[in-house]
């Protein structure tokens, strides 16, 4: 079976998890290419106009995979942490695909509730093989690859902290900060300007209490607490236009940064691809950060 994985949304949350899972099951994995002009155009065409860019993009990627595979992976992330839940727009992806595209395509769903991957994975793996040992081996390999990835990210974070350069923390959903085409290469732009760009997905969250019920928002507040205990020069919050979660989270992030007197810039993205506006703002922000140090 050819299994298609859209390189968007959940892929960026756990880049290796699902690829490893299906490869270990002996299936051929087709990964859609990184977002490009064609995919973005497809996203705008198929996506709902009031969705955020990321949810539009997932449909662009699905349209690419449509005739190249037998089934598309769409894990149902109800909640990636105990007692918290995910963005509802994620959950609707398979059902909405059925409504948007005329072609029928099968979806491979895996329910993840309270951050528990195993039960859903076991069920999904069972449709491919009945052999219990194989299933357990596949699951443990897949989860290991996720843990390894996380470990590598944390290592990178520690290395970045030790760097001499000024550190700019980029806060945002993994699928926003790492989709370089969609965010007009923000990370590279920061590096070109001699900044160390720390992305929040590499930060191990500090223990904290929060009323925020979305797993992502909750994690962000913990990661913010962690980076604030180090010497950072500034924060860029990167979100998609009409992101429901960020509409709630960002005011709290901004408030926290105001208390710590750290410059913060909120960049909002949509399918617009003009780079000039972005360059001006990044330049201005970098200048601000440098000027504050001199003062």
């Amino acid at each position: 079976m050819k299994v298609g994985i859209p390189r968007s949304l959940f892929y960026y949350k756990h880049p290796h998890l699902w690829v490893t899972f299906f490869e270990e099951l002996g299936q051929e994995v087709v990964l859609s290419p990184p977002t490009n002009k064609t995919l973005l155009e497809a996203a705008v065409r198929f996506g709902e106009d009031e969705s955020c860019l990321a949810v539009k993009l997932v449909f662009g990627h699905i349209s690419y995979l449509m005739d190249k595979c037998d089934a598309i992976v769409a894990p149902a992330y109800y909640g990636l942490q105990p007692g918290r839940y995910s963005c509802p727009k994620f959950l609707g992806v398979p059902d909405i695909t059925k409504s948007i595209f005329r072609e029928r395509i099968e979806f491979l769903r895996c329910e993840v509730d309270d951050g528990e991957f195993e039960p859903g994975m076991r069920q999904l793996a069972h449709t491919f093989t009945k052999d219990r040992h194989t299933i357990e081996r596949v699951i443990s390999r897949a989860l290991d690859s996720r843990a390894e990835h996380k470990h590598r990210l944390h290592q990178r974070y520690r290395k970045q902290l030790a760097s001499e350069k000024r550190k700019i923390v980029v806060i945002g959903h993994a699928y926003v900060i790492h989709d370089a085409y969609a965010n007009l290469n923000l990370l590279a732009k920061l590096q070109d300007r001699g900044m160390e760009a720390i992305t929040t997905d590499s930060v191990p969250p500090a223990p904290h209490e929060s009323f925020l019920k979305w797993d992502f928002a909750y994690e962000t507040m913990g990661q913010l607490k962690e980076v604030l205990s180090h010497d950072i020069a500034g924060v860029i919050v990167l979100s998609n236009f009409n992101c429901g979660v960020d509409a709630i989270t960002v005011p709290f992030v901004e408030h926290e940064l105001e208390q710590h007197d750290i410059p913060c810039m909120h960049l909002i993205l949509d399918e617009h691809t003009g780079e000039a506006g972005m360059i001006t703002r990044v330049d201005t922000f970098v200048d601000t950060v440098k000027m504050r140090e001199r003062a």
């Binding site: 709902e48 009031e50 969705s51 963005c87 509802p88 727009k89 959950l91 609707g92 059902d95 909405i96 059925k98 409504s99 948007i100 009409n242 429901g244 509409a247």
Partner: peptide, 16 residues
Amino acid sequence: PMGCMPEVTVRPILRK
């Protein structure tokens, strides 16, 4: 309301 998370999600479905 513009950008409502659940209602925007179901909008393509209503169209269908």
